[in-house]
Amino acid sequence: MLSRLLLRLAPSLLTLSCLGMVIVIWFDLPLRIPAIDETALHSFKIIFLSLILEAFPFILLGVLVSSLLQVFVSDRMIQRLTPRQPVLGVLFGSLLGVIFPLCECGMIPVVRRLIRKGMPAYIGIVFILAGPIVNPVVYSSTFMAFRNTPALAYSRMGLALAVTITIGLLLYRYMRRNPLREHLPQSAMAQVVGPGHDADHSHAHPANRAQGRFTAILGHASDEFFEMGKYLIFGALLTALIQTSLPREALSGIGEYAWLSPIFMMGFAFLLSICSTSDAFVAASFAGSFNSDALLAFLVFGPMIDLKNTLMLLAVFRTRIVLTLIVLCFVLVLIGSYMFHVAVFT
């Protein structure tokens, strides 16, 4: 599984790193290859562990909610609650984060469960993209970080909504296949919560329904934890390597090239893979050297697509749909941030 993933990712990663090299050479940026010494290892450890520890509560919450949904909420209820009408559905998906402010690590297992239970996939994907941005926690932290330019906080919400609604409608129109990785026998899923639940499960104590459900929840949750956890740890590892080896001054020089800076900041957000609740403060630290369109691109693209969550998305969704999403997000955010820049900030 992992080796397949590596093989699949290798060409694009190599292309990206080549592109990075070209940029480095082109602009003559200072880049030092770090010697593996003790302080570098310590720095790596601090970043690596802090990323994992910070994600644990959210990923656990995600797999717990997913298991609770699996065991307690029927498919019929999910299907009844989600709107049929596509425009309403896309709006519903993009605003779901207001009620459930989960971050992206916790969101992916929940959405997979919801799609399996009959929520239309385009709504689920819209929730994955919009949820980490369009929610009150992220709004207030962005507002805090950009006290003197609150327009950036509004624009962040607005652009995220515009991008996800567009993507949602495109997905509704053009996505025909089940985007999830596995094909499932639908009938088997429908049985799980039905009256035949205990018969299906034949637990050690078939008579004890409550205990059966409890162990089912723990079983689901811990298996899903490992399933998601490996991508989290791999993503954290890459992120920590990048953060401890790539000096930032090498990056901020690009801020001088206005046309390049939004693209660059999106790439930077992708590599940093930090949670959407705290990325606004990191973006704020760039405010001196980058224009608002680059900051906006960073703030909207990063939570939708980054290294860590691309790996997690690939665990759940087909490669083709993930790549399509990355390209769509990239193009739409780029165009959108430029339009917002012209309309709001000048």
Partner: peptide, 15 residues
């Protein structure tokens, strides 16, 4: 115990 691993074939569809 035979039932122990049964949570594994609960049909919830993960691998």
């Amino acid at each position: 115990r035979r039932g122990a691993g049964s949570a594994y074939d609960c049909g919830c569809g993960h691998d």
